[in-house]
Amino acid sequence: MNIAVLLRQVPDTEAKVVPDPDLRGRIMESEIKFILNPYDEYAVEEAVRIIERGGLAPGGQVPGGAGGLPLSGGGGEAVGFCIGPDRAETALRSALALGLARAVLVSDPAAVEADVVTQGRILAAAIKGFAPSLILAGRELIDTQEDALAAVVAHFLDIPHVLGAGKITLDGEKAVVLREVEGGSLEIAASLPAAVSCSKGLNEPRYPSLMAIKRSKAKEIRKVSLAELGVQSGPQKSRIAELKAPPPRAAGVRVEGEPAVVAAKGIEWMADVAKVI
């Protein structure tokens, strides 16, 4: 039984992100370090733990079909799937060091620049031949906060999708997902195969050991083209029209005097000048 993990690369949380003055909707990449999307680490860790526990019991799986990649690796495997430029290989390498068996990268510019619905359609085509019982993804991207990809992939594979897993319990037929909600928690049962977006708290991702880092070098990152997948990117349905840095913080206002006077002046200022109350 196989597990597909959707992977994406994002700027490091410490990176200073600056809009590119020449490329609308893009950031300056030259000075930035890129990492595996932190939420994706929960998905990777969960997939690796399931495989380490002996994989999934037999049950539903995505039926392989025409146009899919012949990816069957025999027994249960956790494999990463990613759309991204060549530099995304470093993120995939990190996921391999955390325990994925191998990874597939679609790096055609037409795929990389496509909208999320198109990317979901492309990934569904790539994943189909792998016939996974479970598709795991991070719940959102830390840069653009896009959280739709796993749902779109599920849509094109016609399987259920559950958002924001804090706990996943599997039996051969279904995944039971616990999601924390305001004031309580939901338990959602989804028949397998299913796609699940993973939240913080699902697990504690391991630190890759140096031995695992070395082993990851021998693992395959297979680059596939849209032509190999037999899909086309098609026209963009949505795009980032503009990317703006937040306006610099304006200087504050200093109010002095007795506490009662300061409070009154402060309220007056908030009401009349800042118009926040």
């Binding site: 470093t90 630190y207 140096l210 070395k214 990851s216 070098k217």
Partner: peptide, 14 residues
């Protein structure tokens, strides 16, 4: 090298 970079990143995170 990729390995050195990953090792150093791992040390930083730890």
């Amino acid at each position: 090298s990729d390995e050195a970079r990953m090792a150093i990143d791992g040390a930083k995170r730890f």
